[in-house]
Amino acid sequence: MPTVTLSQVKLGDKISEDVLTPLGRVLLQKGKVIAGRELEILRAFIISSVAVDGPAVPVKASEDANAGTASKQVDDKPIAASSLHDEYDKMLVLLRQVFNDHAAPQGIPIMDIRNQMENLLQHIKNYQILTFVPRSFMERDYLLHNSIACALTSYLIAQWNGFPQKEWMQVALGGLLHDFGNTRIDRSILSKPTALTVEELDEMKRHTVLGYQMLKNVASLNDGAKLAALQHHERVDGTGYPLGIDAAKIHPYGKIVAIADIFHAMTLNKSYRKAVSPYLVLEQIQSDAFGKLDPTYVRVFVEKVTQFHNGTKVRLSDERVGEIVFSDHVHPTRPWVSIEGSIINLTVERHLHINEVIPS
């Protein structure tokens, strides 16, 4: 297991010890076979030497093997993704019916909703927050898509933050029904393409109280799921609505759904505003963590949704397409991107940002 200088590393060599960054993070893992991309990363981090086992397999064979694996993943992936999308579409149909009926509390088919949510959550491992796109999206259905996405994202945030498993479903239902009160708001206000008047804004804000009133007597929802409808626009510094309460009085579910709602409200197309880059939205959420959102939930959310995207193809704000090769835990929304042999460090190139994550 010789240690060799970087100039001596050959394509096809297999790394025998983890390669670390100057800050001690794993850059390349033990067992990784060196190809052109790996050499590029090593040079970018000015790594002087690495421990190698020598040629593991011919590079061509390695690439063929990887290609075979990728082919299998491509062949298998539509099966899993199709199941997620199928259950998502069924939830969309059910939620459209419920929202269009403007159901009274006793009329909400909560068991049908819960059963379909269980079916959807069976495929939660295939749901990736930064890259998931509904199969069919119409702007008039924004409220429905936002509700389903908030349910899935809230479920994960609760899971990531160590909530008891018995609460995960309730958090998801809180996310799903958080905007239920909007069914009682004039549609012309919800879809208005220009700024709302003071009167219209006050009317729109009523959806929080209306939603809570519609859900408060639903026995199969716990208090947190009901309060998510009332409190998802409250802010930890007391500047939110409808009550202007601070962190001490906002239920944890309300804090979680607030994060999910902001993220999806900004990354989904609306009739009056186009979707924003998810990475820019994450940066906005990080900024709002100082005084507006729960900082612990925000930190975990941003870390989790960005940590597994090394190797993901992205489109930058200047339209160039590249691949994420390294994510800095201090700046998770500004990774290093490889574009045609050059490394773009977005923590340095602040005028650029990731505009779009390209699903594989």
Rank of each mutant, 00 (worst) to 15 (best):
D186L: 05
K249E: 11
L196Q: 07
I339P: 07
N146T: 05
S83M: 14
L28I: 06
H251I: 01
G54E: 11
D89C: 05
D202V: 08
I343Q: 03
P193E: 06
N161I: 04
Q128P: 00
V50A: 01
R315S: 12
L120F: 00
P359F: 13
I79M: 10
I129W: 00
I129E: 02
A51W: 01
K30R: 13
V325P: 01
V50P: 00
V218T: 07
I358P: 07
R235D: 12
V281G: 07
K292Q: 13
L190F: 04
Y272I: 01
S62L: 06
R140P: 01
S277I: 10
L27S: 14
L243K: 07
Q284P: 00
Q8M: 07
N355W: 03
L176G: 00
A225Q: 10
V57L: 15
H123L: 09
I344R: 10
P332N: 10
P134V: 06
K292V: 14
E283K: 09
Q29R: 13
K292T: 14
K77R: 11
A81L: 12
H329K: 13
L27R: 10
F137I: 12
N66S: 09
R206M: 11
A248C: 05
C150K: 02
L243Y: 02
R114E: 15
T239Y: 02
S154I: 10
V33F: 02
N115S: 10
T3E: 15
D86L: 13
N161D: 06
Q231A: 03
R235G: 03
D101W: 01
L210N: 04
A225P: 02
L27Y: 11
K90Y: 12
H207E: 13
K14D: 02
R140S: 15
K274M: 12
A80C: 08
L120K: 00
T21H: 12
A44L: 08
A289Q: 11
V171R: 00
A70R: 14
P359V: 06
I344A: 12
E118V: 13
L173W: 00
G31F: 09
